[in-house]
Structure formats: structure tokens, C-alpha cells
Amino acid sequence: MTDRALRTTLTEEIAAAVEAVPGVAFLRPGLGGRLRSALPRGASAANGGRSVPAGVRLTRPDGAGPWRVEIHVVARGHVRTLDVARAVAHAVEGRLAGLLPGEQPPKVTVTVTGLV
């Protein structure tokens, strides 16, 4: 699996884990997602039909150290934002531990960008 394919797969898995957390309304839409809705349907074929989920940024600066994960979510207004952020971080850490056993734990940053 290429590095790009691995990164895309991990990002999709992380997005699925985040969206399953109670209190998360949705991942923050990025500029690409907003523009994509204005493009014709066939325009996404350039990426093999797969799009990287908005609101998830996955990096590994030195190639061997821990993954760095930045999550941007919009939370539901009836729950405590801190609880949602902690639950999202825990879900991401657990998902990556299952997908990448034996690797260093990821450094997860969660930002709640809005409430609905």
C-alpha cells in the first residue's frame, strides 16, 4: 500500500470513528467540500472517486514518529463541548491503535468549531 493510500484509508477510518461519537454533529466541512458541491459529478473521478473527509488532518512529520491527528468537529448544543472533545480523542486513539498495532500512540488534537 502506498503512503498516499494508507493516509487516505486511515483518514476515512478516523472520520468514521469521529462521526460515531455521541454529541458530534458532523466533521467541519473544508473548502474542498464546499467547492466540490458546485462541481459536476464527474469531477471527483480524478481522485479515483475517493475524497478525503473534511475535518481530519493526518500527518507524520518525521516518517517514523507518532501520527499527528487534527480533528475539527461541530458538536451538538445539548452536550458539553469538553466531553465531546475528549470522547473524539479517545475514539481516534482507539481506532488507530487497532489499525496500527505496535506503533506509538498518536498525538490527537480536537477542535470544536461550532455548535448546532
Rank of each mutant, 00 (worst) to 15 (best):
T9H: 08
A64D: 14
V18E: 09
G48V: 03
V73G: 01
P61S: 03
P22E: 15
V21C: 00
A46R: 07
L35M: 02
T11I: 12
V69E: 01
P61R: 01
V24I: 13
A17V: 05
L99F: 05
G77S: 15
A87N: 09
T11K: 04
A85Q: 02
I14P: 12
L58T: 06
V73K: 00
V24R: 06
E13T: 12
V110F: 06
L96A: 12
H78E: 15
A85W: 05
G77I: 11
R68N: 08
D3C: 13
L100C: 06
V108P: 05
G94Q: 12
G114R: 04
L27V: 11
V79L: 14
A45H: 03
R60C: 07
A85G: 08
H72K: 15
T111W: 08
N47A: 13
T113W: 07
A20G: 14
L115T: 14
L82W: 12
A38F: 03
V108C: 07
R68H: 00
P105L: 10
E13S: 13
E93F: 08
V116W: 15
T59M: 03
M1A: 05
G49D: 02
P105I: 04
V73F: 06
R41H: 12
L6E: 06
R95Q: 14
L35I: 02
V108A: 11
R95N: 10
V88Y: 06
G94W: 15
R95H: 15
D62Y: 03
G94V: 14
V88I: 11
P29Q: 07
L96S: 08
A46H: 15
L96F: 09
G33A: 03
E13R: 14
T113F: 04
T81R: 14
N47I: 13
V73M: 02
A87E: 05
A43C: 08
A46S: 02
W67P: 08
D3G: 13
L58G: 00
E103I: 02
L96R: 04
L82A: 11
A15V: 02
G98Y: 08
I71F: 04
V79W: 14
D62P: 12
Q104M: 12
L31V: 02
A46N: 08
E70D: 06
V56K: 00
H78Q: 10
L100Y: 01
G98V: 05
E19Y: 08
S51V: 11
L35Q: 00
V21A: 05
L58C: 01
R76F: 12
A17C: 05
